Simulated assay, not measured.
Amino acid sequence: MTSTTSLSRNGARSMAQVSLFAALMAVMGLIPKIDLPLGVPITIQSLGVMLAGVMLGPWRGLQSMLLFLAAVAVGLPLLSGGRGGIGVFLAPSTGYLLGYALAACITGAVMYALQKSPQLSPRRTAIHAFVAALIGGLIFEHLFGMLGLMAMAKLSFAQAFKATLLFVPGDFLKCILCAVIVHTVARGMPDWRFGGRHD
Results as ranks from 00 to 15, higher is better:
Y96E: 06
V72Q: 08
L97R: 01
L79K: 01
R83N: 13
S121C: 07
T43Y: 02
A26W: 02
W59F: 13
G85S: 12
L62T: 00
M111A: 12
A16S: 15
S80T: 04
Q45G: 06
I31A: 13
T94W: 09
G136T: 07
P41V: 05
S117L: 07
I44K: 01
A16W: 11
A73W: 08
L143E: 05
G53E: 08
L76T: 02
A109P: 00
V88H: 10
L20C: 12
L24E: 04
V27G: 05
F144P: 05
M28W: 05
L114K: 09
P92C: 13
M55D: 05
V27S: 07
T94F: 13
S64V: 01
R13K: 15
G145C: 08
A91K: 08
V54T: 11
G99L: 03
G108F: 06
G75P: 05
S117E: 12
F140R: 05
G75L: 10
G75C: 11
R13Y: 10
Q17M: 13
I135W: 02
L47S: 09
A91Q: 14
L20A: 15
Q45M: 05
I42M: 10
T43K: 07
V40N: 01
H142M: 12
G99T: 08
A129I: 03
Q45F: 04
H128I: 03
G61T: 02
V131C: 11
L149H: 07
S80E: 08
V27I: 15
L69N: 02
L69Q: 03
H128D: 15
F130D: 01
R123Q: 14
R83M: 12
A26D: 06
M111Q: 14
V72N: 11
L47W: 09
G61K: 00
L138A: 02
K116A: 11
A91E: 15
R60N: 13
A73G: 08
A73Q: 02
L114P: 01
V27D: 06
Q115C: 14
L102V: 14
D35M: 12
V49D: 00
M111V: 06
G82R: 01
G81D: 04
H142Y: 15
V49W: 03
Q63E: 15
G29D: 03
A23C: 11
I31E: 08
R60W: 13
Q119H: 13
L114N: 07
A113Q: 12
L90W: 09
L97F: 07
P92N: 09
G108V: 07
G145L: 09
F140E: 09
K33A: 15
A16G: 10
L114S: 07
L20E: 10
A101I: 00
L20S: 13
V110P: 05
M146C: 13
L67Y: 08
A113R: 12
G48C: 05
P32W: 10
R13L: 14
Q115R: 14
S46T: 15
G39P: 00
